[in-house]
């Protein structure tokens, strides 16, 4: 750390940690959902809705979605940085990705809070 070259931007540590923290949250949620589906085998609308209308699952599902969208942002930015070299085009794709993800976050709120 002593001889590092200062390039003026961040070093990506925050993103690196955020990618893993969000991954852990989603992994735990995936296990919870798999166990729930396995245990309850919902086969009607009422049973299916009841799973996500439950306060704990609503909170966890919302946490999952927010983690997902942050995780997707880091991953897609990595992909754009690796394969799209023209700066203007890359910036456009990055902005489009953020716009889509922010929109999806609002959409997820709408889906979950109607329950």
């Amino acid at each position: 750390m002593i001889n590092r070259i200062v390039v003026g931007a961040g070093y990506g540590l925050k993103d690196w940690i955020a990618q893993r923290a969000t991954a852990l949250i989603m992994a735990v949620y995936t296990l919870i959902l798999l166990v729930t589906l396995g245990a309850l085998s919902p086969s009607s609308y009422e049973a299916w809705r009841a799973i996500f209308a439950n306060g704990f699952m609503q909170f966890m599902t919302f946490l999952f979605f927010i983690s997902l969208f942050y995780h997707v942002w880091i991953g897609m930015r990595d992909i754009w940085m690796d394969y799209v070299k023209p700066d203007g085009l890359r910036l456009m794709l990055e902005i489009a990705t953020i716009a889509a993800l922010v929109g999806y976050a609002g959409w997820a709120v709408k889906i979950l809070w109607r329950l």
Partner: peptide, 23 residues
């Protein structure tokens, strides 16, 4: 990497399906 990108691209379809299943 490919699975991540494909899932991202199909997110609107999956969200729509999730919404339909619960509405």
């Amino acid at each position: 990497r490919i699975s991540g990108a494909v899932l991202f691209l199909l997110l609107p379809v999956l969200l729509w399906l999730f919404q339909q299943s619960l509405a």
